[in-house]
Design a protein around this nucleic acid. Structure first.
Lengths: 236, 236
DNA sequence: CGTCAGCTTGATTACTTTCAATTGTTGTGG
DNA sequence: CCACAACAATTGAAAGTAATCAAGCTGACG
């Protein structure tokens, strides 16, 4: 399932300006291109597992990934998502710790695999990159803390509304501009909102009944975005 | 409430080896010593407020600080603690954002105040420091994600047990080796565990009845640490 | 000695989970 | 293409958990 990367240096497809790796000099880019592998992961494939030793940096080329941790009684909690242009595993590599979460492909995904030592050497050589990493970490931390409050204090309806909005900001809409561009099972939405499958189903159908969303097969269509936001009971 | 710092360069008291700022060269240390102020904050004083523009780095010299965010309906959620040797506000300074939380002194505290531009200049000049910051951020993020799972999936009894353990790791014990070295109101413990004051009281007295803790005035004494851990229902 | 904040207890209410049962969907091998 | 197995979605009813509301209590302090 691996082939050499034929792309131009450093995943040109991976959102050129987005990716944190952009801004490297040519030597480093070539080093990465030379050393990396491309992996194709099918839906449901595990990219890395919580607790395993971290040997690689993953650069998402295409696809959707969920990051989850195991909680009480083995219940899954989705902590965040990654998509094209995002990098995974950098935190574990930087702090020399095992992967802190499990990464699972939500659909067929192309992911470049960059060996630990290559990444580490480049971070050491690139002061600018380390500043980018700091910004990235700050952002992740900020949203983790916000997520904490959401889960801690909100009702299920509020959390599910919040989860839908997170899906929108993470993956956007289809061409119609109102259908969320991702397929998740009810159970996965539950793992994101921190509730049960049954309650998720009931709440979604309630939101649908209230004209805020519309459930069309596997798709969730946002019919009243303003009201959805109001439902999260957040005042930023 | 401010006086010039008379201490040796860079808060020698602030846990010499602990503080992230250690390892700087003498020039930078002197720059900081010269530019910083010392502040004394009384119990309940606010050091900085969520949403305000970040102008300073705070280096805790002595005392205990709680970091909290406002949630739904203005309910407070404690996100973490800081104590002697910890630094506050660095994330906002690095990412040029407002303070993401409110810092409140839990008891009389001495805190050095280092202006933004001094900190920024030093970070720019010190590659090693930026790596330290990355590690710090990684650690914070890790615990934030763990906290998320705890709050999302655990019962109140488990969360309160968890909260007590966090107090122990944050502040330690008194000399007797079993009394938690911090005074918090029931309502603050509730804000930490993400529940209400009444439920906190009931749960604490239940834990006390079960012989796991003992409530002695304002103090909480851990009488059965093993059982307290078992109560968190965590398996690391 | 009164007051106020923090602490406690009880009763009621509301929200979610859990359990159980059914239906719908999808992918696979014959 | 059908039948079957496995997974996903749905619905109802019962049980549990924690929040809310209301009312005393307690102790520190001016």
């Amino acid at each position: 399932m691996k082939k050499n990367c034929t792309e131009s240096p450093i995943c040109s497809k991976c959102g050129n300006t987005q990716s944190i790796i952009c801004g490297l000099n040519d030597t480093d880019k070539n080093e990465i291109s030379y050393r990396k592998d491309d992996g194709i992961y099918k839906k449901g494939d595990i990219i890395f597992k919580e607790g395993n030793n971290a040997h690689n940096l993953f650069c998402v080329h295409k696809g959707k990934i969920k990051l989850s941790k195991l909680g009480k009684d083995g219940k899954e909690q989705i902590v965040r998502f990654a998509k094209s242009g995002d990098i995974l595993g950098y935190r574990s590599l930087l702090s020399n710790e095992p992967y802190h979460a499990t990464a699972t492909a939500m659909e067929e995904s192309e992911i470049c695999v960059i060996p630990k030592e290559v990444f580490q050497k480049i971070v050491e050589d690139n002061y600018k990159l380390s500043l980018n990493l700091i910004q990235l970490l700050s952002k992740d931390l900020k949203s983790a803390e916000q997520h904490l409050i959401d889960v801690a204090q909100k009702t299920v309806r509020e959390r599910i509304s919040e989860a839908l909005l997170l899906l929108i900001t993470s993956f956007g809409y289809l061409a119609d501009g109102k259908t969320i561009n991702v397929h998740m099972t009810r159970s996965e939405i539950a793992d994101l909102a921190g509730t049960t499958t049954e309650t998720t189903i009931r709440t979604l159908s309630q939101l649908s009944h209230d004209g805020i969303i519309s459930l069309e097969g596997k798709n969730i269509v946002i019919t009243n975005h303003t009201e959805l936001i109001r439902n999260t009971n957040t005042y930023d």
